[in-house]
Nucleic acid binder design. Structure first.
Lengths: 199, 199, 199, 199
DNA sequence: AATGAATGAGGGTTCATTCAT
DNA sequence: AATGAATGAACCCTCATTCAT
C-alpha cells in the first residue's frame, strides 16, 4: 500500500526522517532552537507531532542527529590534519578545507553560531567544543607566543564571520568566501612566520 | 522615606529595578533569554513575578533596558568616531576603545554573542545591527578592495572572539585582551596599507 | 498647596470621586465591567490605581455608587406611581417618565442592558430587578389575562430596545424616542382596554 | 475503535468536543463568558485545560463554535424569509418560527442577551448583528412610517423579552411563549395595517 | 509508519487589592 | 488626597511528551 510504480509516494513516505531533519534545520536556523516548536515542524510536514516521535525520541535528538550527520566532514578534516606534519602548508590546507566545510553545511553552522547559549546546554555542546579545539590545535603552534596563537584562532573565526556576519558587504557569496579565505590564510602565514622569528 | 544619601532615582525606588536588571543579565548570560523564566528571576530576588511587572512592562523590556543602558558606551564611541578623520590612527583608536567597551560590559556582550538568534527577533536586534554597521563603516575604507574590507571586519570580530571563545588559551584575561588587541590593530593597519597600495 | 485663585486646580482635585465615576461609567458602558480594569480607569484620570482606593473600597463599589446615583429618578418614579390610582392615564404617565429617565442616564442603562450577566452577580443585581418588578406591577393589571400582561412588559421592554438596539433605524435620537414612546403607549392602552373587555 | 453505530465524526472523536461545548455553554449562560475560566470547564469535564486546546484553538473559538452550530436555524429562517413575498402572512410566519428557534437554543440566546457587551467584542458580534438586521428587514416595511417600523422591531424584541425577562410572570414556559407570540403577531399585524393606511 | 487524544508542567501576563508613607 | 511598591491568585495559552490504536 502506498507503493507506486515510480515510487514517489513511497519516497515521500520512506524518507520522513530525512524530511524532518530538513525542515527542523531550516526552522532552527531561522528562528532558533527554543522558539521552534515540534508543532511547527509537524505542521510544515503535514504530519502530526506524534509522528516525529516515531523517528526521534526527543526534540534534542533531532538536533543531535543533524549535528552528527553534518559535522562529519569536520571530523574527517580533523582526522586528516592530525596525521599531517605541522607545516605551514598543512595549516593552510586545513583553513581551505574548513572554509569549504562551513559552506557545505551553512544552515547548521549558522545555527550553531547564533544559538551558542542553547547549544552549550545540549548534549552536542561539548562535542562541538572539542572539535573546535582539535582544529585549533592543528593550526596553532603551541610554542609560539600568545599573539601568534590569537592570530590563528582569529583566522578560524574570520571564516565564521565571513559566513554569518558579512552578508551586507559587496560581492556575492563566492567572492566573499574567497576574500575571507585570503585573509584567513594570511593570518595563518603571519602566525607561522612570527613563530619562526621568535625561536 | 526611601531618600538615600545621593538620592538617585534608582535608589529612592528601593533599587529593585536595578536588582532585577542585575539578576536578569546574569541569568540571561548564563542560560539564554528563553530558558530564563521570570519566575526564576523573581525567586532569586525573593519577590513575586508580579513585582517584576511593576518595573517592566514585559520580559522583553527587561532586556531592552539592559541593552540601552549598557550599550551607551558603544554609541558614544560611534559618535566620536564619526567626527574624526578616517586616518589609520582613528581606526586604531576605535579598535582600542571598542575592546575596552566590550570588556566593560562583558556579560551583556556575551549574551548578545551567544543568543544571536533570539536577539534578532527582539526589538533590540536591529538597533544592535545598526551599531555594528556604523562601527564597521568607520573602520572600513569603502573604496578599498573586498579583501581589505574583510580584514577590517575580521579585526572587529577578533575582538569578539577574544572575549568569548578564547577562554582556554593560556594567560589571564588582561594578557589575552592585549594579545587580541594587538592582532586586531595589526589587521587594521594591514587593511589601511593595502588600501593605499591599491590606489 | 494646589489651591489657586480661580479654583480650577482645586476643583479638578476636589471632585476626583466624581471624575472616577464619569470615566468608569464611560468605560464600563463601552467595554463592559470585567473588561475594564482599574488600571485603565486610573490611567485615563492620570492618577494611580491606589488613588481609586481612597475613594472607593472596591471595584464593585464604583459601579454600585453609579447605580445608586443614577437610578434615583427611577426610584422616585416608582414611589410616585405607587401612590397613584391604577388608571390608564397613570400607566401611560409612568411610561412617559420612564422613557425620559432612560434617556437621562443612557450610559448606565446601556451598561445594565449589555452586562446583565455581570450585573446579576453584583450586589446591585437584585435591587435592579426589584425596581423593574415594581415598575411592571404599576403598569400591569394583575387580574388581566397573561396576554395583556405580556403587552405591558413588552411596552417597557420596547423602551429599552429603543434606547439600545434601534440605532440604525432612520431618524435622530429624539425622533426615535418619540416613535418608541408612541408604540409603548399604544401597547399599554391596548392592555388596558383588553383587560376591561375581559371583566 | 471509536466508531459508533451512527459513526458521526463527533462521536468517533470520543465526543469530548461535544462535551466541552455543552459544559461551556452551560457555564457561559450561567456566569457569563469572562467569568467562566477554562480551568472551570476542564474541571467539570475532568480533563486538563490542555485537553481543551486540543479541540479548540482559543477560548473564543469555543463560543464561536457554539454560535455557529446553534445559530444555524436562524440563518435558515432568514434564507427562507428572504425568498418569500413581503406579505403579512410571511412576516407572521417569521415571527412564529423565530419564537420556536429561540426556544430551541435557549441557553445560547440567553447568553447572547445577557452578555451583549462581551459578544460585541467577540468575532461573532458582527455576524449576530447582521442576522438580527436581516431578520428585521424581512419583517419591516421600509416605506412605512418610523412608528410602524418600531412596532416591528418591538415585536421581535418582545420575543426576546419573553424568553429571558418574564420568568416571574404566571404560567409555565409554554403558556408564556404562546402569550408572547400572540402579542408579537399582533404588533406585526398592526404595523402591516398601519403601513397600508399610510399609503 | 503514523494518528488522535490527552497530560503535566510551565510560560508570560493581568488583575484587584493592600499598605506604609 | 494620593503614591510607590508589592502581592497572590488567576488568567489564557503552549510545550514536549506519551500511549493506545
Amino acid at each position: 500500500m502506498g507503493v507506486t510504480m515510480d515510487g514517489t509516494k513511497q519516497q515521500r513516505r520512506g524518507n520522513t526522517r530525512q524530511r524532518i531533519q530538513d525542515v527542523a534545520l531550516e526552522l532552527f536556523a531561522e528562528q532558533g532552537y527554543e522558539k521552534t516548536s515540534l508543532r511547527e515542524i509537524a505542521e510544515r510536514l503535514d504530519v502530526t507531532k506524534a509522528a516525529l516521535y516515531y523517528h526521534f525520541k526527543t526534540k534534542e535528538e533531532i538536533i543531535v542527529s543533524l549535528f552528527e550527520d553534518l559535522t562529519q566532514p569536520i571530523q574527517e578534516l580533523i582526522d586528516w590534519g592530525q596525521g599531517q606534519p605541522h607545516t605551514l602548508e598543512t595549516k593552510q590546507e586545513i583553513v581551505r578545507r574548513y572554509s569549504r566545510a562551513l559552506a557545505g553545511a551553512e544552515p547548521l553552522f549558522r545555527f550553531m553560531q547564533e544559538n551558542q547559549a542553547t547549544v552549550r546546554e545540549l548534549r552536542i555542546g561539548d562535542s562541538f567544543k572539542d572539535k573546535m579545539r582539535d582544529l585549533r590545535d592543528i593550526v596553532i603552534d603551541p610554542e609560539s607566543s600568545l599573539v601568534e596563537q590569537v592570530r590563528c584562532v582569529s583566522a578560524l573565526f574570520t571564516l565564521h564571520a565571513g559566513m554569518f556576519v558579512m552578508q551586507d558587504l559587496e560581492g556575492d557569496f563566492e567572492k566573499r568566501r574567497e576574500a575571507v579565505l585570503e585573509v584567513a590564510l594570511d593570518l595563518v602565514r603571519q602566525a607561522h612566520e612570527g613563530a619562526r622569528r621568535e625561536s
